[in-house]
Amino acid sequence: MRLSRDDWARAGLELLAEEGLAGLAVEPLARRLGTTKGSFYWHFKDRDDLIQAALERWEADDTTAVIASAAAVEDPRKRLDALADRALGDALRLGFDAAILAAAGDPRVQPVLVRVTRTRMEFIVQMYRDLGLSKRDAERHARLTYSLFLGMSQLRIAEGARRPSPAEVRRSVGHAVHMLLSSAGLD
C-alpha cells in the first residue's frame, strides 16, 4: 500500500495524542505504518513539516468539519446538541485536544491552537446568540461550554482505564449544557 502525506499526518496526529509532541518522531511512526523513513522523506522535508501537517489535519477534522456538520442544523438548540455529539463522538478526538493543549507553549503548536480556539469559540458564541442570549451572556456561556469540553478531554486522559465512555462524556456535557440553558431561562 502506498502511503499519502495525509496518511502520515493522520498517523502522526494519533501518535501525538498517545505520546505527546515529544513522542511524535519519524522512526516510531514509520514502524507503526509498516514502512521506512524513506517514505516519510518522500512526503515531508522534516519532523516540523510533519507536525504542521498533523496540526492542520486536527484543525480540519476536529474544527472545520465539526462546525460544518453542526452548522447544517437549523434549530439552534438542536445545533448545540449536534455540536456536542460530533465533538465528543470519537474517543480519540478527546485525546487530540488534550495532547495539543499540553504542547501549547511550543511555537509550532501555539498559532494553530489560538486559531482553532478562536474559531470554535466564535461558533459557540453564535449558537448562544441564535438562542437569544445577549453578546455578553453568549460569550460567558460559550466559555463555560468550551471549558467543559476541554476539561472532559483532560479527564478522559487522566482517568486512564477508569475513563468514562464517549457516551457517558456526552451525557455529562449534555447535562451541563442543559444547566447552562436553564440558568439563562432557555430550557
Rank of each mutant, 00 (worst) to 15 (best):
V177W: 01
R118E: 06
L155K: 01
S134C: 10
R86T: 13
A70G: 01
R31T: 13
D61Y: 11
M127I: 13
Q110W: 08
D187Q: 13
A68D: 15
A91P: 07
R156H: 11
R156Q: 14
D90S: 09
R77T: 03
R115K: 13
R77A: 01
G95C: 03
Q110L: 14
G38F: 08
M121Y: 03
E74H: 03
V173C: 07
L80Y: 00
P28T: 11
A167V: 04
L101T: 03
D130M: 04
D187Y: 14
P107N: 09
A87V: 12
T63H: 06
D106W: 06
W42Q: 11
R162M: 01
V173H: 04
A138D: 00
L150W: 04
R170T: 09
L92R: 15
S183Y: 12
I100C: 03
A70S: 09
A176I: 10
T63N: 12
I124D: 02
R163D: 06
D61F: 10
T35Y: 08
P111D: 08
D187H: 12
D137G: 03
A71F: 04
A70R: 02
I124H: 02
A60R: 15
L155E: 03
L101V: 06
F149R: 00
D81H: 10
T35P: 05
L80V: 06
E139M: 11
K45G: 11
A82C: 09
E27W: 12
H175G: 14
P166L: 01
A72K: 11
S39M: 05
E56R: 14
V114H: 14
D62E: 15
A142L: 06
L155R: 00
S172P: 02
M179D: 13
E27I: 11
A84G: 09
L131E: 03
L94V: 00
S134A: 14
W58G: 05
G89S: 10
S4P: 06
M152L: 14
D62C: 15
T145S: 08
Y128A: 02
E18C: 05
R86V: 01
L148I: 02
A70E: 01
H175T: 11
S4F: 05
E19Q: 14
M179P: 01
G95I: 00
Y41D: 08
P107R: 08
S134G: 11
L55I: 09
A176T: 10
M127T: 04
V109P: 00
A158N: 06
R5V: 05
L33K: 07
A25Q: 15
S172N: 05
V73K: 02
S134F: 11
G185V: 04
R115H: 07
G34R: 10
V114A: 15
S183E: 07
A99D: 07
L24A: 11
S165P: 00
H141T: 01
D62Y: 03
A98R: 07
T64L: 12
A87G: 09
G132R: 02
K45S: 11
E56S: 10
S147A: 13
A25P: 12
S182V: 10
D137V: 12
L186D: 02
L24T: 08
T119C: 07
R120Q: 04
H43G: 13
R129Q: 02
A53L: 04
L13F: 06
D90G: 03
T36W: 05
V116N: 09
R156S: 08
T117K: 13
A11H: 05
V114Q: 15
G185Q: 04
L83V: 02
L155M: 13
P164G: 10
E122C: 13
L21G: 04
W42F: 15
V125I: 15
R136L: 13
